[in-house]
Design a binder for these strands. Structure first.
Lengths: 215, 215
DNA sequence: ACTTGTCCTGTCATGCCGTCAGCTTACCGA
DNA sequence: TCGGTAAGCTGACGGCATGACAGGACAAGT
């Protein structure tokens, strides 16, 4: 399905080539964590990987191309976030737990991949469809599950029929993503991590069910 | 208080100089709207402004410095967002209206300044304190007002005492900011603007009061 | 040892960065 | 009217990143 890994000029990459390629991706990841995206240069990535800029260009058209590669990998991993919501109950104590687990899982995933997610977010906001698609892939997994949960509650008469499930789910997911992306920011806002999570869980529960969670 | 406008090498800028400086800022703004931040080059901004790169460096240390200038101006304007919340009622029909006005005002402001806000968001997420401060300045105006509203409702026994006002307010504001920044994205998600606003207003109202808004 | 195909790098033309010296323009007091 | 002074702008330059290419190094099979 994925086909073989190929160089820019069409050759198939062998064992050694793939290792080099991967090392370049790893080093790029590190650089994204430690310096602004705007300042990440091919030459720095290559130096850090113990190779030359020319080698970089053998495997990637440019920095953006390599970033997309990293993002794609992360998106696959992120699709697993669905399980935080799919098939779980939103009623009573279990509902409270579902909300809390969703928040916890989301924040953890974001913290682990914050550098690359920042760039994806920027690319999407700038209107780049490739980045937008990746962002979708990650958020959709949660978004669809949330929307389904709301629709389910609607069909059972537990939530107003006139609320737009997709819009509410999308807004909640956006909230989670944004807060996750500025976790450090909240701290200097005087809000601690430990206080943040319950509040997010409360808002998620409120948004999905329209009611406060059970104690 | 602000002192005179000065060039990088310390000269005070006169009428003509200030005009040139402003033109450079305007052109930079346009470039940010039309091309990725990463690809905005000093030479392009200078060309568009009908001047030379050397002139740019006379007024700004680098692209980032000029961006901060634009952002600062926008932040002053954005501080007016406080009025969307301050001193307004969250009870009954008026409460519904307050939530709707807040959403509307927020989205409008964001749409008008989306290009620069993207960059500010990125800078803040990357940990740059200067950008973070500007983001704070804008969001704080709304955030503090919201937090005060929640605290007020708490003191009157209308909201649970154990919810953290600052955390909830911050999360709601983050949601608004994030959704506003990806307004175009929501459209291809199958959610129309007209459906988005009521959902956001619902969530804001739920978050602040804990109850669904009155019809 | 020889061949084949993968893998890496030295080198080069191009273009942007950021600085400086020096030229032009505007203002002002004598 | 006429310098004098400071503001305003730019050509030019060394430095560095980019991206392309050709050719050398290397591993594996015969």
């Amino acid at each position: 399905m994925t086909g073989q890994v190929r160089t820019v000029d069409g050759r198939v990459a062998g064992r050694r080539g793939q290792a080099t390629r991967q090392k370049l991706l790893d080093c790029l990841s590190e650089m994204l964590s430690s310096s602004p995206y705007r300042d990440v240069k091919v030459i720095d990535v290559a130096r850090r990987a113990g190779t030359s800029p020319a080698t970089f260009y053998q495997y990637f058209p440019d920095v953006e191309g390599a970033v997309l590669e990293i993002a794609e990998t992360m998106a696959k991993e992120g699709a697993g976030l669905t399980e935080l919501v799919a098939g779980r109950s939103w009623v009573g104590k279990a509902g409270r737990q579902t909300a809390e687990d969703l928040v916890e899982g989301f924040l953890t995933f974001w913290r682990k991949n914050d550098a690359i997610l920042r760039v994806v977010d920027l690319g999407a906001a700038e209107g780049d469809k490739r980045f937008y698609k990746i962002r979708m892939k990650i958020l959709n997994s949660v978004n669809n599950s949330l929307a389904d949960a709301i629709k389910d509650l609607q069909s059972r008469g537990k939530v107003d029929k006139d609320t737009n499930a997709a819009a509410v789910a999308g807004s909640l997911v956006a909230m989670l993503a944004s807060v996750a992306g500025h976790q450090k920011g909240f701290q200097s806002w005087g809000v601690k991590q430990s206080e943040l999570k319950p509040s997010l869980a409360l808002l998620v529960h409120l948004g999905v069910t329209g009611k406060k969670p059970a104690k």
